[in-house]
Design a binder for these strands. Structure first.
Lengths: 194, 194
DNA sequence: GCATAATACGGACTGTTAGTCCGGTTGTCA
DNA sequence: TGACAACCGGACTAACAGTCCGTATTATGC
């Protein structure tokens, strides 16, 4: 057992917790309805174990989020066009926004938990994930479209795919996923045009 | 004393509570740092009084918000152009977004409290205020720009003036209020152009 | 002024939650 | 197999939103 490996029981519990948390968030109307006690109980694990593994609620949610985002991250970092690095900047920005929207639509429960519960002073905007995608978008926009307003435009595009807005469009405005994505792509293209 | 008037002590306490709450939210880093006990104590009032007047935390925050928003609402409903009803739709939309951003920048503490703490399942998007301004913007956009995408565009424009985004732009990206508003106006105009 | 009833007050109380702590247990390795 | 490090569980704490009811204040009719 090398030093950074966890013990077998620890690994088993970690998986059980992630699984249970994901399940509970998915089947709850609001992330607030899911308490840490609920998650521990559903995972068949003591509360102490849950908190020792994940530190606090926000970290648990972030790990769940990271797991769901990993495939997209992979495609963006080293996949084929239009998401990968060899795509033309303009198409790549549109593809990234569309893919983000898709992931958020498909995992809205988790995304809501992430954007909501963060923690006292923790803004979504300071999370490594937001910073990374914002930085990438800003670079792409700066390279091809508008050097001066790149950071600004990147923020605006990301504001348009916030999980709570998407959720509202789906659940209250009854807009289909397809229509949301079509509108979004159109919107991005207009925004990126001169 | 007519039936809808409140007793003198009740009126005094209501004002004290609103004042104290506003003060506390303004001087706190995050709305979460301000508890209802804090507000009651600062207002020199018992907790029961606070909850009897306002029902719950979300209502209190909404009332504070409504007070700050009242002047703008007034200008939009019956003021002169560019905010009032006689303005050309395109200019009016831009003016409304700009004015909203200004109010939010000037009252960021309250706006954060509103967008954050809402309540279990209460989305910002279902509040009467959001619905009202979204409806107005959608109507204006439908009348003059794009009938088909009006509701969508209105949502996107409002997403761009969310309090937490504005706060991030100010406090982390160190963007000046003037620059934010300039970028925003430019962005809105581009969005509303064919 | 004063009696009276309606109204409002305050703070002790409840229920729930995130997060901590430590005595006991289990897995790993020699 | 034995020893020890890592891990486990759930009782515990602190803090919070929201409730309740005996007491105090206010308006009103006389």
């Amino acid at each position: 057992m090398t030093v950074q490996d966890e013990r077998a029981d620890a690994a088993r519990n970690r998986r059980a917790i992630l699984e249970a948390a994901n399940q509970l968030f998915a089947s709850s109307h609001s992330p607030r309805d899911v308490s840490m006690d609920d998650i521990a109980a559903a995972a068949g694990v003591g509360k102490g174990t849950l908190f020792r593994r994940f530190g606090d609620r926000a970290s648990l949610v972030r790990q769940l989020y990271a797991i769901r985002l990993a495939p997209l991250r992979e495609k963006i970092e080293s996949g084929p066009p239009p998401l990968g690095p060899t795509a033309a900047p303009r198409e790549r920005v549109a593809a990234i926004i569309d893919a983000l929207a898709l992931v958020k639509l498909q995992n809205s429960h988790l995304m809501l938990a992430l954007e909501e519960g963060g923690g006292p002073a923790s803004s979504v905007y300071q999370s490594p994930d937001y910073l990374a995608v914002h930085g990438l978008l800003a670079d792409l926009i700066a390279a091809d479209i508008d050097r001066h307003r790149a950071a600004w435009i990147a923020h605006m595009l990301l504001a348009c795919v916030r999980a709570d807005l998407l959720r509202h469009l789906v659940e209250v405005d009854r807009m289909s996923h397809a229509k949301i994505r079509a509108n979004l792509i159109d919107f991005v293209e207009r925004t990126l045009s001169p």
